[in-house]
Amino acid sequence: MQVIHTIQALRGHLKGKTSIGFVPTMGFLHQGHASLIRQARQDHETVVLSIFVNPTQFGPTEDFSSYPRNLEADLAVASEAGADVIFAPEVKEMYPQGFATSVEPAGAALPLEGEKRPGHFSGVTTVVLKLLNIVGAQSAYFGEKDFQQVAVVRQMVRDLNHPTRIVACPTLREASGLAMSSRNSYFTPGQKAQADVIYRALMASRAAHQQGERTAGGILEAGRVVLQSQEALKLEYFTLVDAATLQQIEQQVEVLGDSEYRLLVAARLFKVRLIDNMGLV
């Protein structure tokens, strides 16, 4: 496995390679990231993983400076999972002096995270587009935990006619059901034990639907009861959306086609911001 820090060196290393799978990350890798690497390894001859904590997708009061970083541990996870190349650029390599262009997504980028974190998806799509152009992969792999992000990136490559195929891989969870995330490291063990409330709420709403509840409001209420049981939790949103457009479903609407909808949640628990999602089946 080779670690490369500059765009020129990466392009030189990849020149002539025709089957490349790409996994973009911000590092502090866990087994969720490893599952993306393994899928890329299964599909392609060469697997490139990027490690770049992208400053443009963090708001002024968010955790860019404190975001967890551990390159040595990341290299061990990436190597075990089957990555061939690690691209770990400095900020000045990705955003050199005079950089003045960005992507401004609308559509799927506007609700939910788009409302809660203004400018976030502009930062995400700008850096993802840059990385896709730099790597030149046939496929790029993203985790479904960031469901809205996947939708926004897919919208971007479609709208801008980018040839890279976007592959969404299932969310990996800890034994408690908590979705694996680099930010889980912010919890103390005792706090982390309580973070399963997000998963339990999603499961409660799914169960309500499977047991015959058909209105969006009724489905969501089953999960809200669980969320309200955790006094330390500060809910930002818990909603049912159209899985393709991310538009929220009105409370009174009957939910018929199971695969057309997605439960999405964002909340702060002990000051740690968590997002998660789940289908109805």
Rank of each mutant, 00 (worst) to 15 (best):
Glu144Thr: 01
Asp146Gln: 02
Asp146Thr: 00
Phe147Pro: 10
Gln148Met: 06
Gln149Pro: 10
Val150Arg: 12
Ala151Lys: 15
Arg154Met: 10
Asn161Lys: 13
His162Met: 15
Pro163Ala: 00
Thr164Gly: 02
Ala168Val: 02
Leu172Ile: 14
Glu174His: 12
Ser176Val: 00
Gly177Lys: 03
Gly177Trp: 02
Leu178Glu: 08
Met180Asp: 03
Arg183Val: 00
Asn184Gly: 04
Asn184Met: 05
Asn184Leu: 04
Tyr186Met: 14
Ile198Gln: 03
Ala201Leu: 08
Ala201Thr: 08
Leu202His: 08
Met203Thr: 10
Ala208Gly: 03
His209Tyr: 15
Gln210Ala: 12
Gln210Trp: 04
Gln211Thr: 13
Gly212Tyr: 13
Gly212Asn: 13
Glu213Gln: 14
Ala222Lys: 05
Gly223Ala: 06
Arg224His: 14
Val225Pro: 02
Val226Ile: 15
Gln230Gly: 07
Glu231Thr: 12
Leu235Gln: 09
Glu236Pro: 02
Phe238Tyr: 15
Thr239Lys: 07
Thr245Asp: 00
Thr245Gly: 03
Gln248Cys: 15
Ile249Trp: 08
Glu250Gly: 13
Gln252Tyr: 04
Val253Met: 06
Val253Arg: 14
Asp258Arg: 00
Asp258Ile: 01
Ser259Cys: 06
Glu260Trp: 09
Leu263Cys: 03
Ala266Met: 11
